[in-house]
Amino acid sequence: MAYFVAPDSIVRRIWGTADTVLFIFAGAAAEFALNKAVDWLYFTGRLPADPLGRLFSTVDYARRIVFADRVGAEKAIDTIAAIHGAVEKKRGYAIPDWAYRDVLFLLVAYSIKAFEVLERPLTGPEHEEIVAVFCRVGQRMGVPGLPGSYAEWRAAREQHLAQDLALSPHSTDLYRQYRKHLGRPRYQLLRAVQGLVVPASVRIQLHLPDGSWINPAVKFYRLTKRWPASQWAKNAMLPSEYQARIHALDAAPVELAPPRDAAAVAAPRGCPFHKAVPSA
């Protein structure tokens, strides 16, 4: 059977673990709040209204691409592209190419950072594999100007961080929604995790903590995460009604049901980026 992502790929290991996935989306939620294309989140308003629901919708799509066979993965990517196109048509103009690249770049960045914080340093070939997988997603969607190597991605990533991020009223409102839906203790935990994984420029703009106070807990978790008692760490990040879905992220979903928002292609229910980027 042909796969979009090889069964032994490091990308499957990264996206097959609940704690790593949650760290990826914590970091990406911070960075995308600063993206100059964040106004697309507010065109339909679904993500600000339901950030946790959008998180799991995003996870459904990402894991379908990573774990399904090639045909299933390509169908999921085509659905993402169709949803984007439908919202662009409704709004009357296109999402810029650089915004699509930014989304792919931050998924590469936080896949790497989350795994290295929670597991171990990645090797050179593993870096190349992560870049290659997400660039294949972009190529399938028709995104131009994608890097051909990890070194090229790093250079483009630095340019993105310098040019495409800015604090805006949308940034402030998104964080207001994160706090509303998470509650104060989980919101503070989110900010601590974000401070641990985001680049310094993102941390400074969002006034995030540097992550130092949570570092000892993360190190302890790395040593004990195989113990049943360590599951509290995953449960602590999101409200109790999401715990079953969090634990389900640890299962390798080779055969996945269609994502819940697949029917949104004809009449999109959320902003285009909620399928490819996190909400909190």
Rank of each mutant, 00 (worst) to 15 (best):
V133E: 09
Q205F: 01
P144Q: 07
S149H: 08
R191E: 04
H181S: 09
P147M: 06
G183R: 07
E152W: 01
R184Q: 12
P209I: 07
L146E: 07
T123C: 02
R154T: 13
K180F: 13
V198Q: 05
R101N: 00
C135P: 03
Y150N: 10
V131A: 08
Q177M: 15
A156T: 03
Q188F: 06
V137D: 11
G211F: 00
F134R: 01
G142W: 06
E119N: 11
V193L: 15
Q177D: 07
R176D: 11
Q139T: 15
L122W: 03
Q177I: 05
I204Y: 09
F134T: 01
S171C: 12
P169F: 09
D102E: 12
A162M: 03
F115D: 06
A217R: 12
L122D: 07
R140L: 08
Y110N: 01
L118Y: 00
G138N: 06
A156S: 14
P216W: 12
G195V: 11
Q188P: 00
Y110M: 09
Q205T: 14
S171L: 04
Y110V: 03
A114S: 15
L161A: 05
I130R: 11
H170K: 10
M141S: 12
A200L: 10
S111E: 09
A156R: 12
V218P: 07
D210V: 09
A166I: 04
R184G: 00
R176V: 10
T172S: 01
Y100V: 01
V117R: 08
P199Q: 05
T123I: 02
Y175E: 02
V218E: 08
L118G: 00
S168L: 08
L165K: 07
E119T: 09
Q177H: 13
A109I: 08
G195C: 12
R191L: 10
Q159A: 15
Q205K: 15
Y150S: 12
E119Y: 01
S149D: 10
V117K: 04
L122I: 06
E129S: 04
V117F: 03
D210L: 15
I214F: 05
R203P: 08
E126A: 12
L182E: 04
L104M: 06
I112H: 02
A109T: 08
R154G: 03
R179D: 02
L190H: 14
S212E: 10
K113M: 10
E126H: 12
G145C: 06
Y150R: 14
P185R: 14
H170T: 02
R176W: 11
E126T: 13
L190W: 15
R191P: 00
D210R: 13
R179F: 04
A109H: 15
V193P: 02
Q194H: 00
Y150I: 03
Y175T: 00
G145K: 04
P121Y: 07
L118I: 01
G211D: 06
D173W: 11
Y100K: 09
V133F: 12
K113Y: 02
Y178G: 04
P96Q: 10
W153A: 03
R184T: 13
Y100E: 13
P125H: 14
P216A: 05
I204H: 14
R157T: 01
H181Q: 14
L146D: 07
E158F: 08
P209R: 04
K113R: 15
R184S: 08
L196W: 08
C135S: 14
A151N: 14
T123L: 13
S111G: 11
L208H: 02
V197C: 04
L165P: 10
A162K: 12
K180Q: 12
D173K: 09
E158M: 15
S149C: 09
V193C: 08
L189C: 05
V143A: 01
